[in-house]
């Protein structure tokens, strides 16, 4: 039989044991918190680093592009305009002396016309000129045909959208670039032999369905890839889709893959 004193000692020991056990649990929890905080911090740092790298790439690209434009403006347009200015100064000088130089005026006019032509050429390189001139349908068909030529066996483009449909320039441009990036990615990574594109209108939704027989992604793959990949192309696609409130859907079945781009032609982020 246990005596009262022994029972008391037992209970007190038990209470103390519980007390120290509680402390142990607290220390363990604290350690866990520290580990969690450290891993969160590392993750944040890694994220920030990636963001900086992406920004650097974007800035470098922008700088290169600016340099390229500046060079073209300086070498082509700038040089011609300088000559035109020189000619006009000569005409002014002659005019003060009472001499009318008809020939120099013609030269100046030709030089200005030449610089306008040069500017147009540069402009063509900066915006999808064909898209603005001939519209989304023609531009998509042309882009698809040009990109796939020599790489796949068959490219087919179908459209069911009304001829009188007016799509804003912003939607057209972003839609075109997203499609272009997707076709490039398909050719680079999926190795298809057949690609078909169908552009249609469902309600106020502009849909482009790209079907192919190459290696296909499911929606889950795309989401995972978007999270893991630091690919600038994917970033661009997401960015452009976000601008026009667009949605990208990937489907995969036994024989083919299907990519759908859907954009409401009413709601667009400005």
């Amino acid at each position: 039989m246990v005596s009262t004193q022994e029972l008391a000692v037992l209970i007190i020991t038990g209470m103390l044991f519980t007390f120290f056990l509680g402390f142990g649990i607290i220390l363990f929890a604290q350690k866990n918190r520290k580990i969690q905080e450290l891993s969160d911090q590392l993750l944040q740092e890694e994220k920030a680093k990636n963001e900086v790298e992406k920004l650097q790439v974007a800035l470098e690209t922008q700088e290169t592009e600016r340099g390229h434009i500046a060079r073209m403006l300086h070498d082509d347009v700038g040089a011609i305009l300088s000559l035109a200015q020189k000619n006009i100064l000569f005409i002014q000088k002659q005019a003060k002396a009472g001499v009318f130089e008809h020939n120099s005026i013609e030269v100046a006019r030709d030089l200005i016309q030449e610089s306008i032509n040069q500017l147009r050429q540069i402009n063509k390189g900066l915006i999808p000129h064909y898209l603005l001139k001939f519209g989304l349908v023609k531009a998509l068909e042309r882009m698809g045909t040009q990109k796939t030529a020599g790489f796949i066996q068959s490219f087919n483009f179908e459209t069911q959208i009304p001829h009188n449909l007016i799509v804003s320039e912003q939607i057209m441009t972003q839609f075109f670039y997203v499609t272009s990036e997707l076709i490039t990615n398909l050719l680079k990574h999926s190795f298809p032999t057949i690609i078909s594109m169908a552009l249609k209108l469902e309600g106020n939704q502009l849909l482009l369905i790209i079907k192919h027989d190459g290696i296909a992604l499911s929606q889950r793959d795309y989401v995972a890839l978007s999270k893991e990949s630091e690919n600038l192309g994917l970033e661009n696609i997401r960015y452009r889709l976000n601008l026009i409130n667009g949605e990208l859907t990937f489907k995969r079945n036994a024989t083919q893959g299907e990519i759908t781009i859907a954009v409401s032609i009413e709601n667009v982020n400005s």
Binding site: T4, L7, I11, G14, M15, T18, L21, F23, I26
Partner: peptide
């Protein structure tokens, strides 16, 4: 910590009520 100890204590409360020495 307090409630853990209190839980252990509460398990023996019946004994305390019948044994004032304890």
């Amino acid at each position: 910590v307090y409630h853990s100890v209190s839980f252990f204590y509460s398990l023996f409360e019946t004994f305390f009520r019948i044994n004032s020495e304890l």
